[in-house]
Simulated assay, not measured.
Amino acid sequence: MGQEPTRSARRKGGRKPAETGAPRANLYDEVTARIILELEGGRLPWVQPWGSVGGGVAPGLPRNALTSRCYSGINVLILWGAVIENAYPSQGWLTFRQALEAGGNVRKGEQGTTVVYADRFTPEAEKTRAEAEGGDAKTIPFLKRFTVFNVAQCEGLRPDLSGDPVPLPEREIVPVAEAVIAASGVEFRVGGARAYYAPGPDFVQVPPQPAFFEQINYYRTCLHELTHATGHAKRLDRKILNPFGSKDYAREELVALSGQSAPPATLQ
């Protein structure tokens, strides 16, 4: 769910927050609240693999700029949200100490972003019990928080740090996928910031390929929406006008998910 169990409670230019004596907020509840906040803001980066063309945000997963290790789990959502909210031009992040190790520092007054590290541990008493009684020792899951700063919040960093991916090319055409789209006979429109199939007018629309963080997801999205189009009355005549959250809606999404995959030899 995360990396780097580095302890760093420093915020705002490296100062530790004052101790208030109030009980620590339950980290699980805090992470859940962050997810809800993203949902209410209309941001679904775990299912929407595209952004906006020319938005200035580097493509790819958030990563540690010192170790080049990508973040995972909920941390991807948290850090993508911070990049979008603050219009950071980089997906690179550092802890306060790592910024110092990289020859620079966090600029005074900058606010860090809290991410989490997930792991499991085995209590000594449980190890003793397992040795005495046999069987596997039970482990206990835990979450630990730490604070990171985008490289755009730092200054004086050495120039050989892990850089952001090179800008995406205008298009990476996969001929076999283009042939599938053309052979479908469905009107296909490219543009805007949404991907959808419109059953009434019977057309598919997807964002332009350069908007996708990984360009292969353009074709996966195309095939997903085209699979919905196969349910039109003049094709397979599936029940595709279903209310969101219903069983029929979920069933149709499963059908479309099966259609968006393609052989690795052609699409990867």
Score class of each variant (00 low, 15 high):
V76R: 03
G60C: 10
A130Y: 03
G191W: 08
I36P: 07
T122F: 09
G192T: 06
T139Y: 15
E124Y: 14
S162D: 14
S52R: 15
A125N: 03
P199D: 06
F203M: 07
P169E: 08
P89S: 02
A152V: 03
R220Y: 05
A265N: 12
D160G: 15
P243L: 05
L157M: 12
G41K: 08
F188S: 05
D237T: 14
V83C: 01
A211C: 14
R220K: 14
L257W: 11
V255H: 14
E170N: 07
T147G: 11
G13L: 04
L77P: 01
V31N: 02
F146R: 04
K127G: 02
T95R: 03
L241W: 06
R189C: 02
P62F: 06
G54F: 07
P208T: 10
A132C: 11
N150Q: 10
A262H: 13
G21K: 07
L100D: 12
G104C: 10
A132D: 06
G51N: 10
F213T: 04
T139F: 13
T221P: 06
V166N: 14
V180N: 12
S162A: 15
A22F: 00
T266F: 08
L143I: 08
R34V: 03
P169L: 14
R24L: 11
A58W: 01
A99G: 07
E40D: 00
T221I: 06
Q98Y: 12
K138I: 03
N217T: 05
L27G: 06
A229L: 05
A130L: 01
L226D: 13
L79I: 06
A58D: 09
H228T: 04
S184M: 10
A198M: 05
Q153R: 02
R34K: 00
N75W: 11
W93M: 13
A82L: 05
Y249K: 14
P17R: 04
V206N: 06
